[in-house]
Nucleic acid binder design. Structure first.
Lengths: 125, 125
DNA sequence: CAGAATCCACTACGATACTG
DNA sequence: CAGTATCGTAGTGGATTCTG
């Protein structure tokens, strides 16, 4: 039995989970995998700007946490696919919600940024 | 008018937004602010482990993005509150969803971790 | 009490080279 | 094609100090 999760407590392991979700690539990868199993190379191409290292590393992290499953086909040349687990599917729904929120609110936020400038603006009061 | 947001494109500014949301502290802070305006010191105490620097910095980032509003009361000693904007309220709903997902699935993930060895551990490079 | 400024350890991440 | 290993660097973020 575990203590209930408390992300406000710095020693609670749920913080790690929050960090994984909040990582630079996890959300995008999880969203890609919603369509079904995807090959490594395809992921590489879909997630713009990700390096081979970070792709592998993030996939390993997601695998460790039980969100994705690695499927290695015994072929030459190698063919590896990644697929969401049930838990991962649940999380990827969340990931897509996040992504969609960003896409939906992007124009408003960018509009604001243009008016206020991307630089530091003095505190008004 | 802007191009539509495309987080899969590494040059799309929506990436920044994703990074802000995914930052180490933003989600927790946004959740705290859901109750209404909160003072700096109260935030400091609620979000376990945050440093004064990171609290201020994250609040500035959230402020600049238009998610929170800084309310400085002309008193001595100083009293400053932070309050969600309408846009911020929308985002904080999302933040709460994330937080709740983590809390809800925490036991399953921790259970897995016990059986499969340490899972989400940023320190294992 | 709020927060800016400085210092600095750590690590996240990219680039590159190499293996099967 | 998928993945590992190594190295260099920019950025993150904590501890501390200083201001009004």
């Amino acid at each position: 039995m575990f203590h209930p999760a408390d992300p406000y407590n710095m020693n609670c392991p749920s913080r790690d989970l929050l960090d994984l979700i909040g990582g630079k690539w996890a959300i995008l990868i999880l969203c890609c995998l919603q369509q079904g199993p995807v090959r490594t190379g395809a992921l590489m191409r879909q997630v713009g700007g990700i390096s081979q290292k970070m792709l592998t590393q993030t996939l390993r992290d997601l695998e460790q946490a039980g969100f994705v499953e690695r499927i290695s086909h015994p072929e030459v040349p190698p063919r590896v696919e990644y697929r969401l687990t049930d838990l991962g599917r649940s999380l990827s729904d969340l990931a897509r919600t996040i992504e969609q929120w960003v896409v939906a609110h992007y124009p408003v936020i960018m509009g604001r940024r243009e008016r206020h400038g991307p630089g530091v603006d003095p505190a008004e009061g």
